[in-house]
Structures are given as structure tokens and as C-alpha cells.
Simulated scan of single mutants.
Amino acid sequence: MIAMAAVLTPPHLPFTRLLVIAPALAASLWAVRPTLGLGAACVLGVVVYAVLYGRWDDLMFTVSSIVAVTGAAAYASHLRVQRERTLSQVRAVADTTQKVLLRPVPRRVGHLETATLYLAAAPQAKVGGDFYAAADTAFGLRLLLGDVRGKGLPAVGVAAAVLGSFHEVAYDERSLEDVARRLDTSMGRYCGSRSDLEPLNSDSGAGPDGEEFATAILGEIGHEARHMSLLNCGHPPALLFQGDVVRSLDPRSVSPPINLAQTLGLAYSVERAPFGPGDMLLLYTDGVTETRAPDGTYFQLEQWARGVPAGVTPRELLTLLHEALLVQSGGKLNDDIACLAVRHHEAEA
């Protein structure tokens, strides 16, 4: 179009000077060599135009401008390509880290069907301080979902320590109380090994005496049982869907968060609840209930849950929840979110 404009307009309108725009725009999309090639084509076009139409007055100025802009554009293209490669590598590392820390949860274990949801607050983040895990053990399907009271890489490290310990002890310990004690010990050792690091800042989520801690829910659903066991370590209560009824499983007694058992001096308490055919359990982190609307109101999880159609699968439940949270927050989630849903499948009950 610029060439046509240069040919069809009078000599005193030097449209050929606009050719400097082409390599500048190409740098935003093309690699270095194509950008240089386009700049060379523009120079050649200007020279041919001058020869054919005898317009030599601004040839040197136009050619010099195109050469200078093309050089700068090629360098900008080089930097952009490098940044894209680095970002691709960072994303690959983040994807791998997520797969290592948040191991895939079995979608079906006997009569149980499961699904998970993980949403990171940071746009490019894959992992954070929220975590979940499930293990098909001789004692039944054991579940873990929790939230490290911290942010950034330190929180990821603590979550990794807790998850690593769970995937070991879940298969060996006979009771959820023993699993919780082992998790508490493992997290305490991990945090103690970092005592030589710089002190945590005020946003790290440290507990009393500078300790880090994590709230969590441990669950166990037997392979043939019609009930489940839950151990709530200071975490938001689970939701139980039973037909058209939704109820919050608030613990009757308090269990200490992980890594605060010795500090608070409390014992672990396991509670049982019925869990029969068609029932569904939802575990979630506080990022769900603390999701705010633009006017500052919090997401009302129980109220929303009462409107969920009966008979939905765990995956459908979490998809509906994700959509509701995006609507609530206007598409801007400000905290990590982890959810784990388990349904007692009627067909195989």
C-alpha cells in the first residue's frame, strides 16, 4: 500500500519514507532474520523506485532511516525471542513442579469418584501454598487438603515437605491421628532445617514463636464402609452433599494446625460422618470463601452449594464452583484455591 501511494502521489509527498514502519512492526511478531529480510526488501524497493521515477532527492535519507530502524528492530526481535524462550522454560519448570508436588489423584477408587481443582492467584503460577493429595491405601482412600500460612517459595517448600510426608505415612499409619502426628513432625523438621535462613517477614504467615504452620483436613473413606472419618487441623470445614441437603461438617473438637501441636498442646480428634451412595464430599481452602466481589462481599459457599443440582459428578461440581468464583471476583482471583471432591458412586455401592 505504501508503494502504491508513492507511485500514485506527486513527488512532493514522499510516501517512501513510511517504509521504515514495516521492519519496526515486524519485530513484534517475526524473528531476527525475517525482520532483516523485510528491511532489505524495503531498501531495495526505495532504490528501484528512485531509479524508475528519478526521485533521488531523499533517497539517502530514506535508505539511512530504513537501515537504522531495521537494525534496531532486529535487536528488539532478538530480545523478544530470548524472553519468549525463557518464559517457555519457566512454564515448563512450573508444569513439572506442579506434577511433582500435586501428584495426580486417582479418578476412581472402587465406589469412589474424585476430582480436583487448583487455581493459582498469580497469572503464571502453577503452585503455591495450597495443596491436596489422595492415596488408595489398605485402610481406604485417604485424603489431605491444606493451606500453608505463607506466601511465595517458602510456602511452596513447606507444602512440598507436608505432601512428601503424607505420601509416605498414609500407607503405613493405622489411624488419622498417627498420620497427623507424622505430618507435624515432618513439617517441624523441615522448618527447623531452614533456621539458618533469613528471618521470615511479616507476610510469611509465621505462627507463634516465629513458626510456620499449615491448616489441613485429613480424611479416610473405607473401601466398603458407609461412613468417613475426618480430622480437621484448624481448616475450613468440609461440605457434605446428601441429595438436596448440604451441611457443613464443623468439628466438635479442635485439633491443632500442622506444626503447632506442641505449641498449643492439643490432641488430635477424629470425627465420623455418614457417607453413603450418592453422597459427595467437598474439601476446599479458604481462598474459596475469601473470594471477594468488587463491592467487597465474600463468596457464600454454603448458599451457593444449596443451588447445585443434585446428582452432579465431582468434576461437574468443581467446574460450577470455578465459574461461580470467576463471576464473584470479576475474573480476578486474589488467592490460591485448592479443592478436592469425592462422590460415593451409587452404581458400584
Rank of each mutant, 00 (worst) to 15 (best):
T319E: 02
V169K: 01
Q300I: 01
G287E: 03
Y75Q: 15
A50T: 09
T97H: 07
L44I: 15
A170V: 07
L230S: 12
L200F: 11
G188R: 15
P199D: 01
S253N: 11
R91H: 10
L200G: 09
T116N: 02
G150A: 03
L197I: 06
L119K: 04
R85Y: 08
P34W: 03
T62Q: 15
D250C: 10
D335M: 04
V158M: 13
M60F: 14
G296V: 02
N201P: 13
T313E: 03
F241T: 04
P256T: 07
F275C: 00
Y268F: 11
V93H: 01
Q300A: 13
Y118A: 01
L52N: 12
H12R: 12
L333E: 03
M228T: 02
A341S: 04
V162F: 04
A74V: 13
C191V: 11
G219E: 05
D57L: 08
A41E: 08
L197Y: 10
T70F: 02
N259P: 09
H223V: 03
L8V: 15
L112C: 10
T35G: 10
V105T: 08
V254I: 14
H322P: 06
K332I: 01
H235L: 07
L29D: 12
V90P: 01
G207N: 10
A72I: 12
R83G: 12
A273K: 09
R85P: 00
L29C: 14
S65M: 10
A160E: 12
R103K: 14
Y132V: 09
E168I: 13
V156N: 00
H111I: 02
A341H: 04
A349C: 03
V245T: 09
Q82V: 15
D209P: 03
R272G: 14
V32M: 15
G331A: 11
L249W: 09
V20G: 08
C42F: 12
P154H: 15
T9Y: 04
L281G: 04
E348V: 14
L13W: 08
G276C: 10
G234F: 04
S64Y: 14
L183M: 00
E348H: 14
R174M: 05
G146T: 03
T16M: 13
T285F: 11
V81C: 10
L163N: 05
L249I: 11
T96G: 08
G222H: 06
L112I: 08
V270I: 00
G287K: 10
T116L: 03
I217T: 15
L79P: 14
E198M: 07
D336N: 04
R306G: 06
G110T: 06
I217K: 15
A135T: 01
V51S: 01
P34H: 07
L29N: 14
G222C: 05
Y284V: 00
E198Y: 05
A76Y: 09
W304F: 01
L301V: 07
H322W: 10
R226P: 12
L117W: 00
P257G: 05
V46N: 05
P294Q: 11
P294I: 10
Q328N: 15
A206C: 00
H227I: 14
V156W: 00
H223R: 05
G222P: 09
Y298W: 11
E84L: 15
A120R: 07
V270Y: 00
T62N: 15
L38R: 07
R226N: 15
Y49M: 13
V308W: 01
W30D: 11
A31D: 04
V67S: 15
Q124F: 08
T70V: 06
V90A: 03
M4C: 02
S165K: 05
P208G: 02
L264S: 10
